[in-house]
């Protein structure tokens, strides 16, 4: 039964209007702000000063490199660990205590806000945190200074670990459902034809769940690129991750910094989108 176009339009119109106004409108206003157009006060002195200011920020390149490193490392580690965990979990009977506990924790973890993960990471990993205290108790270190700098560090290890802690369950849950929809049959067939367990996974199962995993990685990458609270709580004083840098500039008492802050956010978003698209076409291209 064909549905009239008008009724479909009525169904999508509210979403299109709200996202168009809030998201599209916000994006457009952001762009206008960065090129010196301020419709409220009727100012139209178009210039690229904001982008020049961003380009001249001290330590900008270090921030860019670190941000890309954090997003990439978080994505790769989350995918690697999450997929392995899902495969292991599927092999294990799911009604064992361990299987059920893992599943529950996966789902429970999805509900934990990122800010809690960041706070937990600091209290666990800092040089006087719980792990350092355990190491001291075991006689492995003689004081906080001997414990490796895992948070507030220049390589942002703490930030990455906080993201990975949050995203592994996400990847795990997604992979489980992808595996369930593929079923065990194709893998078993490959095994019966003499493939090793790894070969069966690599050449039979993985290609089938790959699009889902790419989507999953895309979400993690974009999220790690744009989130403020995790690096703000776990990051070093320098270099700062781009969202932290942008937020600090946006709320500084110099209003002149504001367009530059928006420009920084937009550039990050655009660069991120570019990387995501390149990455996706690379991955889907490789499949062929």
């Amino acid at each position: 039964m064909p549905v009239r176009a008008a009724s479909v339009r009525r169904m999508v119109a509210p979403t299109v209007a709200v996202l168009g106004l809030l998201f599209g409108g916000g994006l457009l206003l952001a762009v206008l702000q960065t090129i010196g157009v301020s419709p409220f006060v009727g100012r139209f002195d178009v210039s690229l000063a904001a982008y020049r200011q961003v380009a001249g920020l001290p330590g900008l390149w270090a921030s860019i490199v670190l941000t890309v490193w954090v997003a990439t490392a978080s994505t790769v580690l989350s995918l690697g660990i999450g997929v392995s965990a899902a495969v292991a979990l599927r092999r294990l009977a799911a009604d064992t205590v361990l299987g059920r506990a893992t599943l529950f924790l996966f789902q429970a973890n999805l509900t934990v806000p990122h800010v809690v993960a960041a706070v937990g990471a600091v209290w666990l990993l800092s040089q006087s945190g719980l792990l350092a205290r355990a190491a001291f108790g075991l006689g492995l270190i003689s004081g906080p200074q001997d414990f490796p700098a895992l948070v507030y560090d220049r390589a942002a290890i703490g930030t990455i670990l906080a993201y990975v802690w949050k995203e592994v369950p996400f990847v795990g849950v997604v992979t489980l459902s992808l595996l369930a929809s593929v079923g065990d049959r194709p893998g078993q067939t490959a095994r019966s034809l003499g493939a090793t367990r790894w070969q069966a996974f690599r050449h039979v199962t993985l290609p089938q769940i790959r699009p889902g995993l790419i989507a999953c990685g895309t979400i993690i990458f974009a999220f790690a690129l744009g989130t403020y609270e995790v690096p703000a709580l776990t990051g070093a004083s320098q270099p700062k991750l781009l969202p932290v840098l942008a937020y600090e500039m946006f709320t500084s008492h110099t209003l002149a910094d504001r367009p530059a802050a928006v420009a920084l956010s937009l550039t990050t978003a655009a660069a991120g989108l570019g990387m995501i698209l390149a990455w996706r076409s690379l991955l889907t291209g490789a499949r062929r």
């Binding site: 299109v16 168009g20 419709p39 006060v41």
Partner: peptide, 21 residues
């Protein structure tokens, strides 16, 4: 092209109440 329409609406919105005294 549908996505353009709300963007235009947003432009109209920003035009509301210009001029700060």
């Amino acid at each position: 092209m549908m996505a353009l329409r709300p963007v235009l609406a947003a432009v109209a919105l920003t035009a509301i109440g210009l001029l700060a005294s």
